[in-house]
Amino acid sequence: MIVDLLPTEDQEAFRDSVAALLADELPIARLHEEAAFGGAAERAIWGTLAELGLFGLSVSEARGGFGCTLAEEVTVAREFGKHLVSPTVLSTMLATHVAGDDILPAIMAGETRVAFANPLKPVDFSNDTADVQLIDAEGVDYVLLWNAQEARLYRAPTDARQAECLDDTVGLARAVLDLGSPAARREGPWMLRAASLMLSAALAGNAEATCAMAVEYGKFREQFGQPIGSFQSIKHYCAEMARRAEAAVAQTLFATLDALEREDGNLFEVAAARLLAGDAARENGRFNIQIHGGIGFTYEADAHLFLKRAWLLSALTSSERIEQARIIAADGPTA
């Protein structure tokens, strides 16, 4: 399969318009104010996000969408990763792959939001209930839950119990989800692919952002009369951060095209993307803190925000062990 992994002109234009909006409306600095936590900053501009077409990107034109594909969604998810955008933007985009005509128009119009439901055990839809964590679910109407066989939307539970999250900029609530009456269903493994790739893209963007931060600081901060980035150990950390980010981005983009090419193919490429993107974000997060020295250890700096988000996104319906098991069980790489 010969691919071009750089954006087409259309993809680039759309990505740039999203990136410009994020730079204006959702700068990282917002996450130093509690008022923006839990997806509040995103809620405040939800209408604008909807107007941009985010919640109808891969919906067919016949159903009022843009008729694009997961390739365009993944392209913007990478930008969301760089800006630590609330996971609920991703889950709402993903919900458009499941929602029926009763729910979809409201999602596309920006009137309905959908949060991730993160299962504490592998999901078995034949059970009565599932213990889940709801992520940035304040005021959402639905939650999204999937396994390798199926994806479902449920009405958001009303009796969720707030909990404190490792990533304190994100809202986390525990709930017992009644699996009995879904609001929408889609059979097949598509959501596992789509969600894994969207989360991989956000993680890859996260890894790219920390690499860029570390490089900037390396040019700016001086010790011993020179920029610390001229010290080889710092330079080599940065080179490794760039390599990890590149690996995560490249594998996520390749796996996306592969998933679009053969919807029923094996899961290998997707799981590889998820494994490497999670690792890249967490490792780069750690080195970014180290390169910032004492400031890197403070609550005031941005560095910890990226590391915490990397752990959160890595753990959504996934773990290193789960992805490794998928990789080894699969047929192997796409030619």
Binding site: A247, V249, A250, F254, F268, E320, R321, I327, I328, P333
Partner: peptide, 29 residues
């Protein structure tokens, strides 16, 4: 499990090498 896990990670990293090559060639085009 430990052996399978390591093999899986190697398999993923080789796949990423393939994808990185594709990305490099895309830039060089």
């Amino acid at each position: 499990d430990a052996i399978a896990g390591e093999l899986a990670t190697l398999r993923a990293e080789v796949a990423a090498l393939r994808s990185m090559t594709a990305l490099t060639i895309s830039r060089n085009m």
